[in-house]
Simulated scan of single mutants.
Amino acid sequence: MSEPVVDAERHASWLELFFDLVAVAGIGMLARLLVDDTSGGGIAVYIIAYTAIWMIWACFTLYSNVAGQGAHVVLILAAMFVLGVMTAAVPEIHGEHATAFAVAYVVGRFLAARPWQRAVVLTDLPIVQTGGGIVPWIVSFWCEGTTQYALWALGLAIDLWFLVSASTERLLASTQERLDRVRRSRRGAGRRGEQVPDTVEVVGADVPHLGERLGLFVLIVLGEGLVQIVDAASEAEWDRPLAVTGAGAFVLMFGLWAAAVRFGYAGVALLPDRALLPRLAWPAHLAATLALATVAAVLGLLVADPRAAVDDRVRSILLASYAGYALLCAGVLAATGHRRPAAWVAGPAVVAAGVVALGTGLAAEGTVWVLAAGVLVTLSARARGATAPAGA
């Protein structure tokens, strides 16, 4: 008698892992972009470029998630090429390669929309099928400088607003109305050919597999941060300040890994698995990974010169991303009913950030260890809470 077959949970395929390799290069290049220009304008372009690269990654991640083994290899390879062009354009994104970055983004968005039929509604990432946010990018082909970047920001803002505000009911209703109009126009013109479906097909994500893919991207961000730290240490003078600062940076990165990946979901620290619907997990993942990538990039700067007092601008960027990440996670945890973990994340992080902010003469080694302590206290509180008796 044969044993019953049990469906195994899907894991990332070799093709998906190959696709993520381009994201590794993109995160590394974005880190260098931030390090090279920490001015207000430089930070703005860094955030815009990060969001654009993440957007292309997200669109094709959802495609491979839904298509599974049926995903077209050529389409994924084309997406990799698009991401490769965007990544290669990052070093000169303030100059002659800005338009190439924009063109690659637009091509990527059009490619991402191709596999989906007009009767299909992707409820978990509807921006794949909308073109409103692409229009400002197309207009930016004929602009330069601040105007071009502002148009990019506008396009991304339109897409993100649509992602968080459009309801599933409205999406289904508008798609059904569009199908009805097409069908009536074809009948009125007496046209034959392509059969127009009568009803809308709703397509959702494979949630367990999507959670793994989101987690892998967080690993990419943190892993690239470790690369930045190691690279900075390799060029610094090997002495006690470097040893202390490097060890603190590693402890901080390992702590963030434990909080965001080991005990988190979609990059949100201490969030239980699948506690967010995919529609909400996407924007949370974008904000969380952006903050983590920024922390990781700045740590490389501190390790590179551990004896010097931390520059005010660099400290501001580090504290904004560190505290911003903690408050984001606390907000998501509180909104999903996990108030105790929210306090575990927000409290120590805010205290640690406050200590660093007040210690204006604090050197790199002290800065990294204070921030690392904030994460370690969070993990310790989480461990004590997890082992406490029920009702305690």
Rank of each mutant, 00 (worst) to 15 (best):
S64T: 15
A71W: 00
Y46I: 03
E96N: 10
A67N: 08
T61R: 01
V45M: 12
A98R: 11
L75A: 08
G84Y: 09
C59P: 00
L83P: 02
F60I: 04
A44T: 15
F101H: 11
T51S: 15
L75E: 01
P91V: 04
C59M: 11
P115C: 10
A44W: 14
I48M: 04
F101L: 11
G41R: 12
H94P: 01
V74G: 07
T99N: 11
V74S: 08
V66C: 05
L111M: 13
G41Q: 10
T61Q: 02
V82R: 03
I53W: 00
D37L: 03
A78D: 05
I43S: 09
V45T: 15
H72A: 11
A98M: 07
G108Y: 03
A67Y: 04
M86C: 12
W116Y: 11
A102M: 09
R109T: 08
M80Y: 05
S39E: 11
A71M: 03
A58D: 04
F81H: 02
Y46A: 08
L75V: 11
G95E: 10
A100Y: 12
E92M: 08
L83D: 06
Q69Y: 01
A78Q: 13
G95N: 05
T51R: 02
H97V: 00
A67E: 14
M86K: 09
A78L: 15
G40Y: 10
A58V: 14
H94C: 00
V90W: 00
G84M: 09
A104F: 04
G108I: 07
G40D: 12
F110C: 13
S64W: 02
N65V: 10
R109E: 10
A98N: 06
H94W: 06
V45A: 13
T51K: 03
A89K: 02
Y50H: 12
A89H: 02
P91K: 04
F81S: 10
V74H: 06
V103F: 08
T51V: 13
T99D: 09
N65P: 01
H72V: 09
G70M: 01
D37G: 04
I48C: 08
I53D: 08
I76G: 00
V73D: 01
A58G: 00
I76D: 00
N65F: 03
I53A: 04
M55C: 12
G70L: 01
R114H: 11
V45D: 06
I43A: 15
G68Q: 06
A79S: 14
V107N: 00
V107T: 11
T87G: 09
I47P: 02
W54Q: 03
Y46W: 14
E92V: 02
T61V: 10
R109C: 07
Q69L: 09
A52L: 12
T51I: 13
M55E: 12
T99P: 08
A88E: 04
A52F: 01
F60C: 01
I56E: 04
I47C: 15
L62K: 01
G70Q: 07
V107L: 12
V107S: 02
L62V: 15
G95W: 01
N65G: 06
I76F: 01
F60A: 02
F101P: 12
A44R: 12
M80C: 15
H72N: 14
M80V: 15
Y46P: 04
V82S: 05
G70P: 00
A112D: 05
V73S: 03
R109Q: 09
W54S: 08
G42P: 09
Y46L: 06
V103C: 11
L77G: 00
S64Y: 03
